[in-house]
Simulated scan of single mutants.
Amino acid sequence: MFDVIMLPVDGSKYGDEAAEIAIDLAQKYSSKIAAVHVLEEFSLNSYDDEEDSGDEILGKITKKAADVGVEVTEHLLTADPLRDMKFIVEQTRADLVVIHAHGANNNRFVSFEDNEVSDTQIGSVAERLLRTCDVPVLLIK
């Protein structure tokens, strides 16, 4: 049903939740996973540190998937996730995107009263994918 499932990952607990579901789907449908970690174009951190962190995040996904027999292709890219995610989906030739509603950097969605991410809002990257992507997007909440 799905040959390639694209999984954008950012190292957050939310990304880990999406990864669990993507791996389960890939196992069920004999799909491959295109795990994508985007290094922000303009970061205050050193590129080497960001690259090392991205490699570690992707490596965890690859190991978890390999443990259940799912093949992963890792993509460590420098881009603007908001602007470029649709293009990345096209380049990975994904049939499905599995993404969590919230990412690691969702400060704009934090409630000042209880200091938790709201269940009624989604992150900007997920929202953009839902509006622009030409393949199905599975939004994990």
Rank of each mutant, 00 (worst) to 15 (best):
M1F: 12
M1T: 12
M1K: 13
F2E: 00
I5V: 14
M6S: 04
M6P: 05
L7I: 05
P8A: 04
V9P: 01
V9R: 01
V9S: 03
D10C: 06
G11R: 01
S12Y: 08
S12N: 06
Y14K: 04
G15P: 04
D16K: 15
D16I: 10
E17V: 14
A18Q: 01
A18C: 06
E20A: 15
E20C: 10
I21Y: 13
I21D: 02
I21W: 09
L25R: 08
L25H: 08
L25A: 10
L25M: 14
L25Y: 13
A26G: 02
A26I: 06
Q27I: 03
K28D: 09
K28Y: 08
S31C: 08
S31I: 00
S31L: 04
K32P: 12
K32S: 10
I33S: 01
A34K: 01
V36W: 03
H37S: 06
V38H: 02
L39Y: 09
L39A: 08
L39H: 06
E41C: 11
L44S: 14
L44C: 10
L44I: 09
Y47K: 13
D48E: 15
E50P: 09
E50N: 15
E50F: 09
E50W: 08
E51N: 14
D52G: 15
G54S: 07
G54R: 02
D55K: 15
I57C: 01
I57G: 00
I57M: 05
L58A: 05
I61N: 02
T62R: 13
T62P: 04
K63E: 12
K63Q: 14
K64G: 06
A66C: 09
D67A: 15
V68I: 11
V68R: 07
G69P: 13
G69C: 03
V70H: 01
V70G: 03
E71L: 14
V72N: 03
T73Q: 10
H75P: 07
L76G: 01
L77Y: 09
T78C: 13
P81C: 08
P81A: 12
P81V: 06
D84Q: 07
K86G: 11
I88T: 06
E90F: 13
E90L: 14
Q91N: 14
T92Y: 02
R93F: 14
R93M: 07
A94G: 05
A94E: 04
D95I: 06
L96V: 07
V97W: 00
V97C: 05
H100D: 10
A101K: 03
A101F: 03
H102W: 06
G103L: 02
G103H: 05
A104V: 07
N105K: 12
N106S: 12
N107A: 10
N107W: 11
N107S: 11
N107G: 12
N107D: 05
R108Y: 08
S111A: 11
E113P: 04
N115K: 10
N115Q: 09
E116N: 14
S118M: 09
T120Y: 13
Q121E: 07
I122N: 00
I122Q: 05
G123C: 06
S124I: 06
V125W: 01
V125D: 00
V125H: 00
R128V: 00
L129A: 03
R131C: 07
R131H: 09
D134K: 15
V137M: 07
L138Q: 10
L138F: 15
L139Y: 02
L139F: 08
K141H: 13
